[in-house]
Nucleic acid binder design. Sequence first.
DNA 1: AGTAAAAGGTTTTTT
DNA 2: ACCTTTTACT
Length: 702
Amino acid sequence: MFATTHDVAQPASGPTDDARASSDLNTQQFAAVHHVGSPLLIVAGAGTGKTKTLVTRVVRILDEGADPNRVLLLTFTRRAASEMLGRVAAASDERSASHVWGGTFHSTANRLLRNFGSSAGLPEGFTVLDQGDSTDLMGLVRTEAGFGERSKRFPRKETIASIYSRTVNGQAKLGDVLDTSYPWYADHIEALKTIFTDYTARKRRHQVLDYDDLLLFWRGITVGPTGDIIGNLFDHILIDEFQDTNPIQCDIIRGMCRTGDERPTDVCAVGDDAQAIYGFRSATVQNMWDFSDHFPGATTVTLDQNYRSTSPILDAANAVLSQTPVGQQHFGKELWSDRTDGRQPALVTHHDEGAQSRAVADAVLDARERGMDLRDQVVLVRSGHHSDHLELELTRRDVPFVKYGGLKYLEAAHVKDLLSLLRILDNPSDELAWHRVLRSIDGVGPSTIRRLSGELDLGRDAPDPHDDPLRRFVEGQGRFPPAATEQAAELRSALSDCGDRMLSPAEEVNRLTNFCELVFRNRYDNADARLADIDQLAATARSYSSRSRFLTELTLDPPAKTGDRAGPPHLDDDWLTISTIHSAKGGEWRAVHVLHAADGNIPSDMAIGDSEGLAEELRLLYVALTRAKDELSVHVPLRFHANRFGADDRHLYAQMSRFIEPVRDYFDEVRSADHAPDDQTIELSSVGVTEEVDILLSSLWE
DNA sequence: AGTAAAAGGTTTTTT
DNA sequence: ACCTTTTACT
């Protein structure tokens, strides 16, 4: 179903044309910036100046005297928010720009709930669980539930967590989610119900919110007794990447708007349904298509002049996108560019992954020779591990790179160990943090934890400030087995010191490092490297005066992990970016190298068989291609590892991506010069010395 | 009884 | 590479 375009805003004639010319906007952008009087949907194709339009619109709103405290800018990442507000600040009064509310749905939910949550029955000082924390809590509940019949395989905690999130975000019935997305687990529906119930109860009891709760509670305070206050906080709301919002987020926007009022809230959503790639998070483009149902009287403006890419690149991207199946239709704009220069994108087939890595490294270095800095280039992959092989090659050649979208620094076990200690101090009834800390002590296993949990009263409902688990613990309650006494004593003394004295977050981290050292030395063989990470965390903590803010910021905006090095390369250095396509959303680079464009990778073989999933994979490839300004190369290794765990040496032969093959005329086809002889050396060394010796030995008697 | 080590199974994207 | 289950060890 399409949004009906009631009336396409037209720019006024006369003096406005001068205004438009001087502001350097095209007709459509100008219309989008200056439209007032009804809700506005901006359909902005890739590279059409969407950010500029949004920024200019905010500047215009501020220039007209709006109260910046009453302007809300919702973006997909915090990075996008701070970048946009930085540009707003540069183009307007710096001080007023800094008062604009900007951030993701989740970080904004956090801010609002800290202010208004208690009046809606939310505990003050709640803790936010990140993805890993919720998963761990789900695991805790899972083991305690016991789930009876072990005849059939039970989903692992990650799977349970994603079933839960799909159910909640899509506002669907558990049974339906299982039937459509996880039919092989449909038999476990009763056990899952029990687990979900318990999971929710524990979160409430221990005053923690997960990501989904942030949205649910935000929506919750837009209705009921607080609804009038919340719905009246903002005069202007701007939402970026609207195609990737889910039904709850759409409800939230509606709830934030005044209705039936002589001065309705000014809503402006920007999106591109051709770039919707977060269906797995229950995002739906239906929100865009139904925009004028959600916001009556809405006007639509379409931006379709692309300023980013050369025509040959855009033609290829359009050709790919035109394969969108009927029923998954988009707003039907075709991007055009007047950058008619430039070469056709390259389509390079390689014998295997090794050849692909070498060729891409060559291409990157070659482009640098031609004057294209590493920072002007990006390598895009469908899945984090697709760049593993290339990362080795780049490291071998001393090419610096930073990887986005892979494993997060925060997900490293030892970092979570330390953060759990801080979380106990912050919220002594955080059962999950206690479990994690106690589990890290040598000599403590499931049974000891169960006993300690009782002795410290970790399951208690309402926290009593004079008798919480932390106080009980530092006062000596909780008996440990002999093997654990030393570590337990250090833990007691460290937590006690942090609780007694008024330490800054950084000082607390320092005080807790002793305990970490004791634990790490017994637990990990690379304790020193891990302790260095803790030091780095202490350094980060130094810029915070509040522990609770430090923890929340860290979970809502986790730092991306780099390549092999401890920190990002120096600022004045030049480095290559490697990114998942998802994390590259919104970005642009002069040269883009897309890896693993083979069927099974793009589209991922997990999405094959479901037409919606397949269409999303197609859009994903479209997003990748449209990141390129000047040069684009798509790489297809015909042979690659069958599984990503490296457990064996099985390889698969793949076809070129089904999305590329039919439109290969738009590409300049190149066969990698790198051939098998060289590969054999690589293969042999990857097989390992043991096999070589075994081959030698068996050749002696066979 | 309860913890530690070893074996067996896994499918991707992220606020 | 990591999580879960099973087995071995104290």
